[in-house]
Design a protein around this nucleic acid. Sequence first.
DNA 1: TATAAATTTGTCAAAAAATGACAAGTCTTA
DNA 2: TAAGACTTGTCATTTTTTGACAAATTTATA
Lengths: 113, 113
Amino acid sequence: MTSLMKTTFGEYIRHLRTEKDLTLTQLAAKLNLDSANLSKIENGIRDFDEKRLPKLARIFGLNIKDLREEYITDLLGKKIYETNCSKQLLKVAEEKAEYRRIRNKNLQTEKTV
Amino acid sequence: MTSLMKTTFGEYIRHLRTEKDLTLTQLAAKLNLDSANLSKIENGIRDFDEKRLPKLARIFGLNIKDLREEYITDLLGKKIYETNCSKQLLKVAEEKAEYRRIRNKNLQTEKTV
DNA sequence: TATAAATTTGTCAAAAAATGACAAGTCTTA
DNA sequence: TAAGACTTGTCATTTTTTGACAAATTTATA
């Protein structure tokens, strides 16, 4: 994990784009996307589609793993915000994730028996 | 927050249901739901629809706030699990949620100016 | 200021995902 | 072994997401 942005993913894209002096139209074309929709993504009205992450990484020369982390932390951050989830509750959520991990591991071994 | 279950929401429903000796058909009827689909929900194949939480709370005499917490922690737990999000990354996600909270608050005040 | 480019906003059809409904299967148990 | 309980599979319907385009508004610059 490299240093992750404390911004939304849309704002992050805008940051990357303006840094490279690209217009919405230019970047949208590279992403095979409508510029109006890219505008909405940057402004948080629409979500960036996960399937375009590899392309985005290539365009800006970013490590795909890092970018995906940027993406999923935004995704979860948004959910945490939307559900009004406190830190305490988030801890419970993490425990439930752990429960799923263990349960899934057990299912794997059950199959082989 | 009362004690939250370290199980999936589906398993929790099954727990509540069997405890009260209800069949899938009986509970499904109370929830205005197909019993086959309730079965899938309990087995984690489908998701419980949030709009039915109040009904579920009434049926089992549960506090709706607590139940909703049970629900959202399951929701987030599932996402954390699915995205393979580490504790470290989850911390980042929480920071991004905080960023959204602050940003939203600022937007509110901007409007009044 | 005029105008051209850049961005935003609104809308709608198409695609994708979630849900409801039902048939047919398996598993339990009385 | 028959009935009830549960599971699985499928498909039509509904809802949500996405792509596409027109028409704004805003910004930059000649």
